[in-house]
Design a binder for these strands. Sequence first.
DNA 1: TCATAGCCTGCACACGTGTGCAGAGCCAAT
DNA 2: ATTGGCTCTGCACACGTGTGCAGGCTATGA
Lengths: 332, 332
Amino acid sequence: MKDTKKRAGSHDVARLAGVSRSAVSRAFTPGAYIADETRERVMAAAAMLDYQPNAIARSLSKNSSRLVGIIATDLENPFYSQLLVHMSTELQANGYAVLLMVSRSSHIDDYLSKLLQYQVDGVIVTAATLSSSMAVALQRSGRPVVLVNNYLRDGGVSSVSSDNYRGGRMVADLLVEAGRKRIAFISGEANTSSGRDRGLGLKDRLAELGMTIYAQESGEYRHAEAAEAARRLLSLSPRPDALFCANDVMAIAALMVARSEFGLRVPEDLSVVGFDDSDEATRQTFGLTTVDQHLDDMASKTVSLMLATISGDEKSVQHVVVPVSLVYRATH
Amino acid sequence: MKDTKKRAGSHDVARLAGVSRSAVSRAFTPGAYIADETRERVMAAAAMLDYQPNAIARSLSKNSSRLVGIIATDLENPFYSQLLVHMSTELQANGYAVLLMVSRSSHIDDYLSKLLQYQVDGVIVTAATLSSSMAVALQRSGRPVVLVNNYLRDGGVSSVSSDNYRGGRMVADLLVEAGRKRIAFISGEANTSSGRDRGLGLKDRLAELGMTIYAQESGEYRHAEAAEAARRLLSLSPRPDALFCANDVMAIAALMVARSEFGLRVPEDLSVVGFDDSDEATRQTFGLTTVDQHLDDMASKTVSLMLATISGDEKSVQHVVVPVSLVYRATH
DNA sequence: TCATAGCCTGCACACGTGTGCAGAGCCAAT
DNA sequence: ATTGGCTCTGCACACGTGTGCAGGCTATGA
């Protein structure tokens, strides 16, 4: 029975400092009307009891929790875990805390409603497709939402994503200039806007140059599936002389398969280009030519948009596009 | 002025259903004393207003937030991001939500106190060293804490970690049986218990076999630093014939350096052994021999311990050790 | 000495929910 | 008819904080 002590409340601090409970509240509220001398006395008492204001009660009273919900999918992919790190860091720096929901692609609705129960001030959804029923539920709840690296066709909710279409076009130019004739594409998950646009950019630019995509397989954004896709593509005859992968993870899988299973030299026999510029692409052994999505930029633009929407500075639905840039390394 | 509607409260539901507010609360409380017929009427009204109980208010009233704080470091390392995924999933399955704090190794105290302000029911700290001042602050706050993959010497707080010491010993046996004579060690960060114990296990077992660690360098658990360490070690003469790395990330870095910069054949010229059994180690190109930490087991034991401590079933400080096992692949 | 203005402070209510307690209604047994 | 017991409901208080409003105190000027 030693530390059965309850957590100290503002009432206890007030009594110890010889002031009212309101004074304690004001002492902890920046910019509130309170005499310096009083604040100091309150702070001293608070330190003595190691009092910390109860954020739950504060949230209830102020009708704002300073919580932002993040629904994260595919965290095994380093791209998304890094994105999470950057967004969290930035949110924390702005005085918000992160309520995390890890989702296996579906079930989003349940997680979302749980987030809403916790009165989050906003929700960031990464890489997952929002059911349209949930989109309207959110709209109605009035909570801001931002989709990252994905967007909805019918434009009801804000989004931030990189310029995937332009990235695809840039890769087309790069490969054609390198003299490639049979350009194959390993796509990501079918229902993601990001993967769709990357393929579309490639296809459109090739068409402008009088070419077409030589062959296409789905790699589901994952290593094993991409390796399978690469095996199928590289078994074609004539064999493709370039592989554009919608993902660095898949590009590295393809690279491994090309080198160790097909004995191909990269880039002499085959170009391989990825998308993301993940840490792994940097490794000397891979030296992967890829498209930089400017992850940090994407994260901070997402957070900025979220905060602006929460504060009411931004009332309209926004679709932010983050520019991409080619990273020339050794595989093209 | 269409959706200026405030979120519906239990009061609104009660009025619509023609019952008292208490009845609404009871309808949403499993096992509460309420007639089936009343519950149904309440639920119908709730659905009509799409009412969801306010978790913040509930937390305040029940003095329990059903939030668990997680302080995460080194999320770039796939091991830790996977750990986060598993723990979150399991917590969510048990009706808890996760309050995430991403930390750059230090500053932990600030994040921790923020978590406490949000009245989290418990805190899980991964891989970071807790300042002893914070350890006592936690102790005093009465909130359960579990350290994962790290522990404190002075045993004040519970922990879950794999049997790093035994893992080190197993690797020693493996390498000696493979006929290796000059076994070098690439260690992780100096102040982590995990890294320390892995090295200690190796050293102790080698000593029992009449051998010593041939050389040792720190790789800070990171790719670039480990590559540097590998370069230094492989430049020694005579050159080591085995590299035990405290981490898969570092083992793969060493593997790349050994093959592409020193032209060594693995395992003919050199053994490389890692620790974690990450997805990357699985890749055929690497085929890394490593120590499986049974990540999922670790995660679920952590969550179980946390939940047991929260519910009061477990009052004492526990140190759970998760068994490890060797994974024989192609690099030893 | 008195009036006035200005700075602070305390009162009291609000935020939305959980729950102990007393009592209402009903059924069955005596 | 009376009593006892059982099931359910509503009242009212509690959780810990923010904040509008009125009023107290001090200083200044007349």
